[in-house]
Simulated scan of single mutants.
Amino acid sequence: MSMHRKTITLTEQQDGWVKAQIESGQFSNDSEYIRDLIRRDQQAKESLAILRQALAEGESSGAPKPLDISAIKAAGRKRIKAHG
Rank of each mutant, 00 (worst) to 15 (best):
M1A: 14
S2R: 13
S2L: 11
M3P: 00
M3R: 15
H4K: 13
H4A: 13
R5M: 10
T7A: 05
T7Q: 10
I8Y: 04
I8S: 03
T9Q: 09
T9G: 00
L10E: 08
L10M: 12
T11W: 01
T11M: 01
T11L: 02
E12F: 00
E12N: 01
E12Q: 03
Q13T: 11
Q13M: 02
Q13I: 06
Q14R: 10
Q14Y: 02
D15A: 09
V18D: 06
V18S: 06
K19C: 04
K19T: 14
A20I: 04
A20C: 05
Q21K: 15
E23R: 15
E23S: 15
G25Y: 05
G25Q: 12
Q26K: 15
Q26S: 15
F27H: 15
F27V: 07
F27C: 11
S28C: 13
N29R: 14
N29F: 09
S31R: 09
S31N: 08
S31W: 05
S31Y: 07
E32C: 09
E32H: 14
I34C: 07
I34R: 06
I34G: 04
R35A: 12
D36K: 13
L37D: 04
I38V: 15
R39G: 06
R40D: 14
D41E: 15
Q43I: 12
Q43R: 15
Q43L: 15
A44C: 08
K45W: 02
K45A: 14
S47M: 12
L48E: 14
L48C: 02
A49M: 03
A49E: 07
I50V: 12
L51M: 10
R52P: 00
R52K: 12
A54L: 06
L55T: 08
L55W: 07
A56M: 04
A56Q: 10
A56P: 00
E57N: 09
E57M: 09
E57Q: 12
E59Y: 08
S60V: 00
S61C: 02
S61R: 06
G62M: 04
A63H: 05
A63V: 03
P64R: 03
K65N: 03
P66W: 01
P66C: 00
L67W: 07
S70Y: 05
S70T: 12
A71H: 07
A71E: 13
A71M: 04
K73P: 01
K73T: 14
A75P: 10
A75R: 14
G76Q: 10
G76P: 00
R77V: 02
R77T: 06
K78Y: 01
K81L: 08
A82Q: 07
H83R: 05
G84C: 02
